[in-house]
């Protein structure tokens, strides 16, 4: 995977399949501390301690269709190869938190990439799930909370064309205001 944002899309898809109703994605770049951290949290079915212990093993998967599961190992490797860290905490019935920390300036850190596309795709493809997305760049940040959108919209679905393009503009403009167009 060439971008961190593609890893985020992939790992967040696991949350949707875990039956989560709320997925929280938090990206924060701290230039002074030279860190980029990504936290993906869900309230899905969670995993047992045995599953957590094995989930970073590419030859472990709960699917029965085939024997490999590469998404989490890819993400872990991407973070750790920059001198960062990776962790998964999970409780059955409560949900899962995946945390990846990257060293911003490390030569092996892949670019964050098109995070706006990732979040837009997640929301549009799962219009019945809620997403809480926070993007922080040093002191500035913005948040997108689909629950807030839903309160305003009532029964208009998030994937109606007008709303979809509003969400796209919201993500694009607010990201630009937050990071000033920094190329992470």
């Amino acid at each position: 995977m060439p971008e961190i944002s593609l890893n985020i899309l992939d790992v967040a898809e696991n949350s949707t399949r875990a039956g989560a109703s709320l997925i929280t994605i938090c990206i924060s770049a701290d230039c002074k501390a030279d860190r980029l951290s990504v936290v993906i949290k869900d309230n899905g079915c969670g995993m047992t301690p045995e599953q957590v212990a094995h989930v970073t093993d590419p030859f472990f998967t709960t699917r029965t269709t085939r024997k490999v599961g590469l998404g989490v190992p890819f993400f872990k490797y991407a973070a750790e190869s920059t001198g960062g860290s990776f962790s998964i905490e999970s409780q059955p019935g409560k949900g899962t938190v995946v945390t990846a920390v990257f060293v911003l300036s490390h030569i092996d850190r892949m670019p964050l990439g098109d995070i706006t596309s990732t979040i837009h795709t997640l929301i549009l493809c799962h219009p019945d799930l809620d997403f809480l997305y926070t993007y922080q760049y040093d002191e500035k940040s913005f948040t997108l909370d689909t629950r807030e959108f839903r309160t305003i919209l009532g029964d208009i679905p998030l994937n109606t064309p007008e709303i979809s393009s509003y969400i796209w503009d919201y993500l694009t403009e607010n990201k630009l205001d937050t990071d000033g167009g920094a190329n992470l």
Partner: peptide
């Protein structure tokens, strides 16, 4: 849109399809 799809470029394909359909 699993790991295999995403890694080979499914996200821009999906985006293009939903944008054009709209």
């Amino acid at each position: 849109m699993a790991t295999c799809g995403i890694a080979s470029g499914a996200r821009p394909v999906l985006n293009t399809l939903s944008r054009l359909v709209q």
